[in-house]
Lab assay of single mutants.
Amino acid sequence: SRHTFEINGERWTVEGVSEELKEILRAAERASNDEAERLLRLALKLI
């Protein structure tokens, strides 16, 4: 499935992501810059 999210003013669209990964991306959208970066690094390990 496709998911579009915005982090630090940048929009991203990813396809074929699991519900778990979507949850991480949604958390990154709400997080501070440092926390968002940490969550994105974690998410990339899952891809």
Rank of each mutant, 00 (worst) to 15 (best):
R30Y: 07
G9Y: 02
A27W: 08
R41P: 00
E10M: 13
R11N: 10
L25P: 00
V14F: 15
S18P: 08
G9I: 02
E10R: 08
T13K: 03
E20V: 09
A36M: 07
S18R: 04
I7G: 01
A36R: 12
N33K: 15
A28Y: 07
L25S: 00
S32K: 09
K22R: 13
I7C: 13
H3N: 09
S18F: 05
A28V: 06
V17Y: 06
K45W: 13
V17E: 06
L39V: 02
T13V: 14
G16R: 04
V14K: 01
R41G: 08
E6Q: 06
L25Y: 01
A43K: 01
K22W: 14
V17H: 05
G16E: 09
A43L: 11
E6Y: 15
E10W: 06
E15T: 12
K22L: 15
R26A: 12
R2F: 12
L25K: 00
R2H: 11
K22F: 15
H3E: 15
T4W: 13
R30H: 10
V17T: 06
R30L: 14
R41H: 14
A28H: 02
E10I: 15
L42W: 09
L25D: 00
R38H: 09
I24E: 00
I47F: 07
E10Q: 13
L44I: 14
K22C: 15
E19H: 08
E10P: 00
H3A: 09
A31F: 03
E20M: 08
S32A: 09
I47S: 03
G16W: 12
E20P: 06
L39W: 06
F5G: 02
E15M: 09
E35M: 06
W12R: 00
E20H: 09
E23R: 08
D34N: 10
F5K: 02
L25T: 00
L44M: 09
E10G: 03
I47L: 13
A28C: 03
V14L: 09
E10Y: 06
N33R: 15
E15R: 03
L21C: 13
K22D: 05
V17R: 01
L42Y: 09
A27C: 11
S1A: 12
L44T: 07
R26V: 09
L25Q: 00
S18M: 04
R30T: 11
F5S: 02
E10D: 06
I7S: 01
F5P: 02
E6H: 08
L39K: 01
E23T: 11
I24P: 00
E37C: 12
L42K: 07
L40R: 03
L44K: 07
I24A: 02
G9C: 11
K45R: 13
G9H: 02
A28Q: 01
L40M: 06
A28E: 00
L25C: 05
N33S: 14
K45Q: 14
S18T: 13
L21I: 15
A28D: 00
T13I: 14
E6F: 14
N8T: 02
R30C: 11
F5Y: 10
A28K: 00
L42I: 11
T13E: 10
E29K: 04
A31G: 05
G16K: 05
E23M: 12
L46C: 11
A36H: 03
G9W: 03
R26S: 12
L25I: 04
R26D: 07
E23V: 10
V17I: 13
E37G: 06
E23C: 13
E19C: 13
E6W: 13
E29Y: 03
R26M: 12
I47T: 03
E20Y: 13
I24S: 00
G9A: 02
F5V: 08
S1I: 13
E37Q: 10
G16D: 13
W12P: 00
R26N: 08
G16P: 05
I7A: 01
L21Y: 03
D34P: 12
T4I: 14
A27G: 05
R2W: 11
K22T: 11
R26C: 10
A36T: 04
L44D: 03
I24T: 02
A28R: 02
D34H: 11
N33I: 12
L42S: 04
K45G: 14
A31W: 03
F5D: 02
R11L: 15
T13N: 04
R11C: 15
S18G: 09
A28G: 02
K45H: 14
F5W: 02
L39R: 00
R2T: 15
E29A: 08
V17W: 06
V17S: 05
R26L: 13
G16L: 11
A31I: 03
V14D: 01
A27E: 09
F5M: 04
D34K: 10
D34W: 09
S1Y: 06
E23F: 08
L44Q: 07
E29P: 01
S18L: 04
A43P: 00
L39E: 00
H3S: 07
L25V: 02
T4D: 07
A36K: 11
I24M: 10
A43G: 02
S32Y: 07
T13W: 13
E10H: 10
E6A: 01
E20I: 10
A31N: 03
